[in-house]
């Protein structure tokens, strides 16, 4: 039997074209040995959730630098739950004020990463917290 591979989706919901960070993360996840589904910018939460289900990912990583994370991130969590896919872990990052972090955790995000965190720390968090489906 081949070993299970972690599948992770990197998506940018909303009207935000700043994808440098998301691309760097995608590359860094590739180097960590994950299969990364990169879906690019300007997506609705509905598109993110639908793609995550079609791709059977273990984790969805959302990036938002526009300030709309309070709406967009919880919307993805809700849509996955509605479609019986709440086993998919949702994490997010970007320009997120400290005051909003607890709000996002309460809304169902399992990890929130803000500027200053290292790529190594994100990989470490994923390896420790995302369980592969079996």
């Amino acid at each position: 039997m081949a070993e299970r591979k972690l599948r992770i989706m990197v998506a940018k919901p909303g009207l935000d074209g700043h994808d440098r960070g998301a691309r760097i993360l995608a590359r860094c996840f590739r180097d960590a040995g994950y299969e990364v589904i990169y879906t690019g910018c300007h997506q609705t939460p509905e598109q993110v959730a639908a793609a995550a289900i079609q791709e059977d990912v273990d984790c969805v990583g959302l990036s938002c630098l526009s300030g709309a994370h309070r709406f967009l991130f919880p919307a993805v969590v809700e849509l996955l739950k509605e479609q019986g896919a709440d086993d998919i872990t949702v994490i997010g990052g970007g320009i997120i004020p400290a005051a909003d972090i607890q709000f996002l955790y309460d809304a169902g995000l399992k990890g929130v990463f803000t500027p200053g965190i290292t790529l190594e720390d994100i990989i470490k968090w994923i390896n420790e917290n995302i369980s592969l489906k079996g």
């Binding site: 590359r27 996840f29 590739r30 180097d31 299969e35 990364v36 589904i37 990169y38 690019g40 793609a51």
Partner: peptide
Amino acid sequence: FTGGAILGDRV
């Protein structure tokens, strides 16, 4: 080298 992949066609 790493066994990882970037699957970017659905963009």
